[in-house]
Design a protein around this nucleic acid. Sequence first.
DNA 1: ATAAAGGCCACCC
DNA 2: GGGTGGCCTTTAT
Length: 165
Amino acid sequence: MRQLPAHSDPSYGFSTTPFGECCIAFSNDGICALTFPETRESAYADLDNRFPDVTFKHNDEKADRLVRQIFEKGSKPVLNIIGTEFQLSIWEALKRVPAGKTTTYAQIAETIGRPKAVRAVGTAIGANPIAYLIPCHRVIRTDGTLGGFRWGLDCKMKMLAYEKK
DNA sequence: ATAAAGGCCACCC
DNA sequence: GGGTGGCCTTTAT
């Protein structure tokens, strides 16, 4: 699996979104993480766990600039997505789900040509490193119920309502 | 190498 | 509504 190069000026910072405070991590290669942690400590832990060999510089100013671009201007910044082949195929499929629409875990499994891997699809979606920009909140269960969400079903509902017209 | 844990689903009650 | 068995990947022993 590809790693985040240490020479690419990895940084992170906190900022405010319509869904609460987020932690965003980025480097010269693009955004590598966007999370909605309960506490800052858990945000650090999350980053450290995902990129054990990388030390990030604190830069709230740049973080804030990025967050404004995303949530105020609606632009789609460059992403630097790091994961296994299986995960990448799923996260790419997620990016093709338009805002305001939902899909199901089973449909994603179908899309990537692994119709039986539904359970694994759920796990991989849960491991999505870049919340919102990789729209894991648009995936619900086949029976129409919400399914799970890493940062709480509340947050998932807010995101869906926000996109629903 | 192997076990255990998942943001699931279909099927039963 | 709740419980079981099967499915597949990832992570931690």
